[in-house]
Design a protein around this nucleic acid. Structure first.
Lengths: 111, 111
DNA sequence: AATGAGCGCTACTATAATCGAAGCATCTAA
DNA sequence: TTAGATGCTTCGATTATAGTAGCGCTCATT
């Protein structure tokens, strides 16, 4: 499956709109989790794997390739790291944590 | 596949952390796109399907069920609508559009 | 009352993504 | 030279998604 990038058609959209490519990318399994785990600093392939509860290395490697092609992650001496672009993305996503706490609260009321 | 909700283990995490449930939910195919298409107002099942370029109704219905269970979307007379919770989520995601434009620019430089 | 168009949705088979386990090649330290 | 860690690859089995067809319903028109 091709890495979704701005300007190219992505899963669920042929517009090439950057936001759609982003949704495609982030929507693949483990992508968000990988980025999430890298927020706290560099991690080796296996450390990352452990942190994600033992994902299969095949899928993880596929995701890491995509993330490298997207310039969100790179592989340095210390291990896999967020690029500044990736770091910025994660910061942009920060408000989601607050939102998801509210979400949990609302679901608790109803359930 | 069970609907990911805060407090329950989700794909890629057993912590039950709201943010992980959110990532699981949003990470499934077409979920983001569906929410995206509903931003502009209520849409019937079939209108939504058309807007998404003809997704298979089976997957779409699965996603819609999940989104209803998550209280992000509901089905009213006018059709499917974002709840206030879902609307707020989409607004929280707004900065992503800006980010993804920057992202596209950076990728253009490199490529 | 029949026709047709729209609705939400289900059933089914086929394909594609993901899982899970095993293992390879390389490097470093003992 | 062995033991451990590294980044991966391969492969068979499982699960999710795609794609097509069509059901049962309602409503407006004829």
């Amino acid at each position: 499956m091709a890495t979704p990038l701005p300007g190219l058609p992505s899963r669920g959209s042929h517009s090439g709109q950057p936001i759609m490519a982003l949704f495609d990318l982030l929507g693949r399994r483990w992508t968000m989790r990988l980025l999430w785990e890298l927020r706290s600093g560099p991690k080796s392939f296996r450390a990352l794997q452990k942190a994600c509860g033992g994902v299969s290395p095949s899928v993880m490697n596929t995701r890491l390739k995509e993330l490298r092609a997207s310039l969100l992650v790179e592989n340095q001496n210390e291990g896999y790291v967020l690029t500044s672009l990736g770091d910025h993305l994660m910061k942009t996503l920060d408000p989601l944590r607050d939102w998801s706490r509210d979400w949990a609260a609302v679901l608790d009321e109803g359930g």
